[in-house]
Nucleic acid binder design. Structure first.
Length: 930
RNA sequence: GCCACCGUAGCUCAGUGGUAGAGCAGACCCUUGGUAAGGGUGAGGUCACGGGUUCAAGUCCCGUCGGUGGCUCCA
């Protein structure tokens, strides 16, 4: 059999059955085809014929890729190889394994490309998917391709739109902390169980009712200041803005008021935070999400103002209230706006007006650039510190943000660095009211907790309290005086969900001429993207979504668009929503769709979902760069769908693992600039010079990127070495989670390992199997140890050590003798999850008919893990001085006697008295002398 | 500035309180003889540094230095 593998070698000297790249690629191609036609990686669902739902399940998910035109580089498959090993391992252990793959295919790059080339994003994306699929297949992944999906498929985004409508039709009930259908709210309003600010529902007119409901929805329309990126022609979510620049592309982002679709993710802040304790995720990722959600405990406090209403602030440090020497309002604060229109006599209106205008027009980049250099203007008004009764000035400054708390702060320059910088800049009072509990009343700004001092007033005294006690006392005091109360605040903002681009899911909603919104009914989904051939964003003061260009599609009627006639007469003229959903939409729920990718009656088949996702995805592997974006959004959608009864588990991804970044060598000139890899030559072993100039360059490690020309294509690696070598090398490089550099010179190491393994069992001259009739004892023991080691290493995703164990075994077996076919079978089954092609080939050569992927994982015998005799080191005072060979089960007494009788030990101890002998059976003997 | 992780052979990395390990590179020997060949044998270590705990520390604790990642006007 396997004559596909006996391709003659070009070099006459090479034995014709040696493991070479040619030989490997021959049988790799053969098995790929065979696996595909036998459908061995296909898995059914509960209820399907032959599907045994009493077996345990393993849902092993990869973060699906965005198929870019450039194709895969060797960094992409790192995580995929890891998850494939786990999937294959679990299949052999008797699990039903769901291991799917798909495409995150909406998004900016394809559209940016369309702008320059005019080629429709659908076309480039489909082509990219084909490339990716071919590249992934060559690596030998065990995906169930019958479950393949792409977020751009109308059959897929139909349900993305359906989920969005669920959110649009829901509200968050604070009293039980979960989402409910809006119909329940309407019912409790109409039957009088609930009122609107003291008014019965029936007293509200139609418009008021609508406005009230719209304000409750989980997906709602809101006019707000957004992160507008002129270069990308779209607004971005907070999570997509880094240091005032767009996450993709790094373009400047400015603040602009726009009417946008939002998600009420803040309603879930406490649950998203609390449930981080329920998942098996990397600590760092949980910390990042927790910090992003940013829970702060504190209090709201009202400060009486000279004129008008009191100013409400939020503070986490009520214990420092005696140290409040001024207040600061955000430039967008209503009081500031009011003062500009009707100024008080002491207000410098011109200065104020100018400051507010400058602040609002400044991009966030600038605002953040000068954190040290505080700016601000005095309002000419004052407030009263409720603790001291003193009059304190009110200022306006852009370091206070309207979007957090109440857009106003009580400034405590003695104990807050930002307030301190502001006070110093404008020469305002600084008062120390906390001292360090162990040190002297300190110089500088103590921002932590301590002991409260200088804090006594008429009806409140905090002196000598700890900060903790003082906080409680102040909260109690303000609550009693009814000037404030305890509060918890989150840093998390609602999620801006509209984009002004073309290549995304359209919203299933239309607007009537009165500005009211109407949903498309379920049976008319999906709202398909209209065709468009011009993708250049419209340049205008008021940003125009691209879909506005599709005029024929844009202006339609309620009936045409699919609005329920019971809601709106079919001939009502309506305009469609022109925003599209962001790239994150499709990835929020793809893990659900994989359970039943072709279900056309529901977004996911109920029984399939309950089986595969009853307790969430078992293992989710993907990059750490999604820690607060995709992973937070997907958790939010999952919770929402869970509340509405559509999804079983509270959390989507039970266990999460981040693979490390694959880096590559890069070369640097003496001035620090980078040189492409292909313009560098090696000299004298460890020196590198730039080919063109001969100047010496320094080797560094950098991300793989086109501009450095240090990108390695997996196709080329497979061509040169075979897919098994690529898989093994990527796993052998180091721990899966660490970032590590691709070093072409190391690949040959794992290739040689496969070659030695092959030579161990296949005669290189004849191609026949090298067999022993009787098992060799040493090999048998080593094999049991190897199976044990590989098994426990795979379970903890430590593939590099598992491979090292296999290398050791092959080295031992090679120098010991031959193996029986039974031993060879167990060896290749142990190898199969990591190097499936060569394992399959040998498996068949030793006479098996069915695929190795469908066999059982080999067993090991505990008693075979230890040898009969072992070498034990003897220490004298903690230093190894000698070694003895003893039976493995020797008693402590026997060990002690043998050790003390060892000639070298006798000599070293000499006359010194032995004070103590520590015997750790199986490990070590330590002799303590006087 | 804060948080997390890391520092072991020239490189990339294992190492579970108990003998310091692997692959690659480099050295030597054997085999082979035409462009990434095979086998074998040496060599290579202040486990970043300084303290502590322990019979025993690469491993646990504290500190310092260096690196990586993340967060950062969030009151």
């Amino acid at each position: 059999m396997s004559d596909h593998a006996t391709k003659p070698e070009s070099a006459a000297s090479t034995p014709s059955h040696r493991y070479t790249a040619d030989l490997a690629s021959g049988f790799e191609k053969h098995w790929r085809t065979q696996w595909e036609s036998d459908g061995i990686y296909r898995v059914g669902n509960p209820g399907d014929p032959g599907f045994d739902d009493s077996l345990p399940k393993f849902y092993c998910l990869d973060m699906f890729p965005y198929p870019s035109g450039a194709g895969l580089h060797v960094g992409h498959p790192v995580g995929y190889i890891g998850s494939d090993i786990l999937s294959r391992f679990h299949r052999m252990r008797g699990y039903n394994v769901l291991h799917p793959m798909g495409w995150d295919a909406f998004g900016l790059p394809a559209e940016q490309y369309a702008i320059t080339t005019g080629i429709h994003p659908a076309e480039t994306t489909r082509a990219a998917i084909e490339t990716y699929r071919g590249q992934l297949d060559a690596i030998g992944f065990s995906y169930d391709w019958s479950r393949e999906l792409a977020t751009i498929d109308p059959d897929y985004y139909r349900w993305t739109q359906w989920i969005w409508l669920q959110a649009w039709n829901s509200w968050f009930d604070d009293t039980c902390d979960k989402a409910k259908p809006l119909s329940e709210l309407i019912e409790s309003l109409s039957n009088g169980q609930r009122e609107v600010e003291g008014r019965p529902w029936s007293d509200l007119n139609d418009e008021e009712q609508q406005a009230y409901l719209d304000d409750k929805r989980l997906a709602y329309l809101s006019e707000q200041v957004v992160n507008w990126c002129p270069k990308l022609g779209t607004a971005l979510a907070n999570e997509e803005v880094i240091d005032g620049r767009s996450e993709r592309g790094g373009y400047p982002v400015v603040r602009k008021p726009l009417k946008q679709w939002m998600f009420r993710i803040t309603a879930y802040a406490d649950r998203l935070l609390a449930d981080l304790d329920k998942v098996n995720w990397p600590e760092s990722t949980r910390t990042m999400q927790a910090e992003w959600i940013g829970r702060s405990e504190g209090a709201d406090i009202d400060f009486q103002c000279e004129h008008g209403d009191p100013i409400r602030v939020f503070t986490t440090r009520p214990d420092t209230i005696f140290g409040v020497t001024f207040m600061v309002l955000a430039p967008e604060h209503p009081l500031v706006q009011a003062l500009i229109t009707s100024p008080s006599p002491s207000t410098d209106v011109e200065a104020l007006k100018q400051y507010v205008e400058t602040a609002s027009s400044r991009a966030d980049v600038e605002r953040m650039a000068d954190q040290e250099d505080k700016t601000g203007v005095a309002l000419g008004l004052s407030a009263i510190n409720p603790a001291t009764g003193e009059t304190i000035p009110i200022w306006v400054a852009d370091y206070v943000l309207m979007s957090y708390g109440h857009g106003a702060i009580m400034a405590v320059p003695g104990h807050d660095e930002r307030d301190a910088a502001f006070a110093t800049r404008f020469d305002l009072d600084i008062r120390t009211v906390v001292r360090s509990s162990n040190g002297p009343a300190g110089e500088g700004c103590l921002t932590g907790d301590g002991l409260v001092i200088n804090s006594s007033g008429d009806d409140l005294s905090l002196d000598d309290c700890t900060s903790e006690e003082a906080r409680e006392a102040v909260i109690e005091w303000i609550e009693k005086k009814r000037i404030g109360d305890r509060q918890v605040r989150y840093r998390l903002r609602d999620w801006l969900f509209s984009r002004q681009r073309y290549w995304g899911e359209p919203f299933p909603i239309v607007h009537d001429e009165h500005g009211r919104t109407w949903p498309i009914s379920e049976e008319h989904l999906p709202v398909e993207l209209p065709p468009l051939d011009d993708f250049v964003p419209v340049e205008s003061e008021d940003p125009q979504p691209l879909l506005a260009k599709a005029e024929a599609w844009l202006n339609t009627t309620a009936g045409e668009a699919g609005v329920d006639p019971a809601l709106l007469p079919p001939d009502t003229p309506v305009t469609r929503e022109t925003n599209t959903m962001p790239g994150w939409a499709g990835s929020c729920w793809y893990h659900l769709r994989y359970c039943s990718p072709n279900c056309d009656t529901r977004f996911v088949d109920e029984k399939a979902e309950a089986y595969w996702l009853g307790d969430g995805v078992d293992l989710y592997i993907g990059g750490a760069e999604h820690a607060v974006l995709h992973l937070l959004y997907a958790r939010f959608w999952n919770k929402m769908l869970h509340d509405l009864g559509h999804v079983s588990s509270e959390e989507p991804f039970r266990r999460l693992f981040h693979q490390g970044l694959l880096t590559s060598w890069a070369f640097q000139r003496s001035d620090g600039s980078l040189v492409p890899v292909d313009e560098v030559e090696e000299k004298d072993g460890d020196q590198y010079v730039e080919t063109a100039t001969g100047a010496s360059v320094k080797r560094t490690i950098a991300k793989m990127s086109k501009s450095l020309r240090n990108v390695i294509n997996p196709d080329e690696v497979i061509e040169t070495w075979g897919a098994d070598t690529l898989r093994l090398y990527e796993m052998y490089m180091g721990p899966l989670e660490s970032s590590k550099p691709w070093n072409p010179r190391d690949i040959i190491g794992v290739f040689r390992f496969l070659q030695r393994l092959w030579r161990l069992v296949i005669d290189e001259e004849t191609g026949s199997v090298i067999m022993a009739d009787e098992p060799d004892e040493t090999i048998e023991r080593a094999l049991h140890r190897t199976i044990h080691k590989v098994e426990s290493d795979i379970e903890r995703l430590s593939f590099n050590t598992a491979i090292a164990a296999l290398i050791e075994f092959v080295n031992v077996a090679t120098s010991t003798g031959r193996m029986t076919t039974d031993q060879i079978g167990r060896l290749v089954r142990t190898l199969a999850p990591m190097a499936p092609f060569v394992a399959e080939e040998i498996w068949h050569r030793i006479g098996n008919e069915s695929s190795i992927a469908l066999t059982q994982w080999p067993e090991f015998d505990e008693t075979m893990l230890v040898d009969d005799t072992m070498e034990m080191p003897i220490q004298i005072k903690g230093k190894v001085r000698s070694k003895i060979t003893v039976p493995s089960d020797a008693s402590e007494t026997h060990l002690q006697e043998t050790a003390l009788a060892d000639p070298r030990i006798v000599e070293l101890i000499g006359e010194a008295p032995v004070r103590k002998v520590i015997v750790v059976p199986g490990k070590i003997i330590n002799i303590i002398t006087g």
